[in-house]
Write a protein that binds this DNA or RNA. Structure first.
Lengths: 242, 242
DNA sequence: AGTTGTCAAGAACGGTGTTCTCGTTTGCGT
DNA sequence: ACGCAAACGAGAACACCGTTCTTGACAACT
């Protein structure tokens, strides 16, 4: 779908190769100085080009280059999360393992974010322009929340729709607010499960934004230990408890 | 402390007045076009100045102006949250009201964020430079988490340190990671309470960042209804339940 | 082999933050 | 009341930036 056919001509081949090279250099500059400092002229300089205008043959604008980096970032992050999910296969084990699996996925996402802080900021930080999210990015951006949804339904599958313990009942307007999402899911998906997944997703990235953007400095001494505990406690509070 | 003495000379008075005027114009431009588009030259133009260099008499750099806006943003947000907290005084009512108070504060923070989206992005979005958080901002930035901590200890005061229901025990490393924070609190403050407060704070701003930065578009139809329910359910999960 | 399209280069335009210099204005101390 | 020093706004200048357009060279397909 992304490649209509194999690159037959040498020109096409060189083109997609050079496009990847541009992105690689841009990603390196992004990692060093952040998105605000990424300049097409500097990218062209690092590539050995004498002129920045040459880059416009490959990306129609600077924002388009950033969008490509965002897309790659989503892909890279989702790959890491899915790899952790797969590595922690729970098979037929007891439900406590689902909580461990959740914590493991959380740590995988956190590790990726710590390894690529500027890329994380590009994805989950403030949108730079008037926010232009092309349809291409949606598919990659939704992989993580869908993975979390699958994880939560793992737990649910073990002992059925466990009754809501102390959680308040879901009012109609809240249930209807999920309509666009429920329309794309199996018709018997309980709204409570979707709610739990979305809340886990929300908390996970809220915690990472806080840590990466410095809102926990001077407050928390050992960020990893704190994160491990908050992930575990949140998972338990959302119904993944033993 | 911030004002050493009353502005005796007319020059001083004009100076602080003009400084406020600069911030007002900058805040207006920020609200219209976002932080990236805020330019000193445009601010000078709107102020009737013929030269942007005149602004350097009042702010040493563009980042310093942005920092001043960040500080004001923290103050404005904290004021709104504290006003909502005070308006929902629970007096000696039953614990269910504490949950309502929590939901009310959450809505106040959300309303502020929706009314000042670019200011919110400036505060809780990706830090622009290499992140320079002067000590002045810390005092304002911590007002909201402290308020949430007070709210959670309201609940705790009613029926004492309620036993941890299904929440996992707090391991030593997690408890020690809170040391910098516990050092500034009453010595009998339970670590579980601090943990709950921090998690509520984290979730609240995680949810707002998602909503404001567009990560919930095409997923949630009625953001306010969803937010109300998630706030209520999170409060219950964190121990504010009836 | 000739034509067509792709390519890098370079100049140019309007914009930015920042620095420096230059008269002017203002307030304070004498 | 006067003079000096500090603060002020204006303006030019520097080094960048994204983007557009034109020009000339090279490669590929017919």
């Amino acid at each position: 779908m992304s490649t209509p056919q194999k690159p037959r001509t040498a020109r096409e081949r060189a083109r997609i190769e050079f496009t990847a090279e541009i992105k690689a250099v841009a990603r390196r500059q992004l990692a060093e100085s952040g998105a605000a400092a990424l300049s097409l002229r500097a990218v062209a300089r690092d590539l050995g080009l004498a002129s920045a205008s040459a880059l416009y043959r490959y990306f129609p604008s600077r924002d388009a280059l950033l969008t490509a980096l965002i897309l790659d970032g989503y892909t890279s992050l989702s790959d890491a999360a899915e790899a952790a999910y797969a590595a922690l296969d729970v098979a037929e084990a007891e439900p406590a393992d689902v909580l461990e699996r959740w914590v493991g996925v959380c740590h995988a996402v956190r590790d990726w974010a710590l390894a690529h802080p500027h890329e994380y900021a590009l994805i989950y930080g403030s949108p730079v322009p008037g926010y232009a999210a092309p349809q291409d990015t949606v598919a990659q951006a939704t992989r993580l929340p869908y993975l979390i949804g699958a994880l939560f339904s793992d737990r649910l599958g073990k002992d059925g729709n466990r009754p809501s313990d102390t959680r308040p009942a879901m009012p109609d307007d809240a249930r209807q607010s999920l309509a666009p999402l429920l329309a794309g899911l199996p018709p018997d998906t309980p709204a409570d499960l979707v709610m739990s997944s979305l809340m886990g997703w929300t908390y996970l990235l809220g915690a990472l934004s806080f840590e990466l953007f410095g809102h926990r400095r001077e407050i928390i001494a050992d960020p990893r230990a704190f994160f491990d505990h908050e992930a575990r406690r949140l998972g338990a509070a959302l119904g993944l408890a033993t």
